[in-house]
């Protein structure tokens, strides 16, 4: 364990309407065992004691599963480590003298609420448009009534691992939400439970995705590269197939 000294440039913005700018702070003697968010905690304690409003940032589980945290560190969503959320990024990946530029996830569909806090409710809207199997509680058949090969279950699980953090949108030069949308559509079109409404689902989820202001996918693969859960763009290929099939045969 050792300590490092850092310079931070953090995006400060009072609220959605205000103009924001990067502010510079220095932090000394940061233990390399800290997580990135703990480093921000330390900064916030310091700012508080200096009478400055602390940096607002979203976070919750701090174990990489809730999808609440996220920021762009030196241009990379969730920072330099692969398959890692911001809360699981540790300071040992940085060294003394590093300048870290910390910005919120930016996208037209994710308005900034304050500092690093953004509004990702557009993702919820996409799910609400059809990211479910329409079953009511009760009256469902026995869990083993439909056999599902373990291979298919695993593929569905690969897609279902999405934590909805929004890094894919933040890193996509076009601000597209294809990786997110395709992950849910893949999960449900792979599993037999989701087959009954697969066409309607693909059409309405894509329609909502477009309406919410996300950009167009141009197969740049940035999303896949920053995804903390390594969701593959194979899911996007699957979504494309689902969508075409639905568009040409639904109704």
């Amino acid at each position: 364990m050792s300590n490092i000294d850092l310079t931070l440039q953090i995006w400060r913005q009072k609220n959605s309407d205000a103009l924001g700018k990067l502010e510079t702070y220095t932090l000394d003697k940061i233990s390399t065992d800290m997580s990135f968010l703990e480093m921000l905690d330390v900064l916030n304690e310091k700012l508080t004691m200096e009478g400055i409003e602390p940096v607002a940032f979203d976070h919750d589980c701090r174990e990489g599963i809730c999808g609440m945290c996220g920021a762009v560190i030196n241009g990379v969503a969730h920072g330099p480590e692969k398959e890692t959320t911001l809360c699981q990024l540790h300071m040992r990946h940085f060294k003394t003298g590093d300048v870290l530029v910390i910005e919120p996830f930016r996208s037209r569909a994710f308005p900034i609420k304050k500092d690093l806090v953004v509004d990702r409710s557009a993702f919820d809207k996409i799910i609400q448009a059809g990211g479910y199997v329409s079953v009511n509680t009760g009256g469902t058949p026995d869990g083993n009534a439909i056999p599902i090969s373990s291979h298919i279950a695993e593929l569905a699980m690969d897609a279902a691992a999405c934590i909805g953090c929004g890094a894919c949108v933040a890193s996509c030069p076009n601000g597209a939400a294809m990786l997110f949308t395709s992950a849910k559509i893949s999960q449900l079109c792979l599993l037999p439970q989701g087959h009954a409404e697969r066409k309607k689902r693909a059409l309405s989820m894509v329609e909502t995705m477009d309406k919410e202001g996300f950009g167009n996918c141009t197969n740049l693969r940035e999303c896949e590269a920053v995804c903390p859960k390594s969701i593959s763009i194979r899911n996007i290929a699957r979504l494309n197939r689902e969508f075409v099939r639905a568009a040409f045969s639904e109704g």
Binding site: T137, P141, I146, S150
Partner: peptide, 18 residues
């Protein structure tokens, strides 16, 4: 049963059972 019907991808045996 409810979760399976919702599309929760529980781990499966090779034969397809839970």
């Amino acid at each position: 049963d409810q979760c399976v019907a919702q599309g929760v991808p529980f781990a499966r045996e090779y034969g397809g059972s839970l």
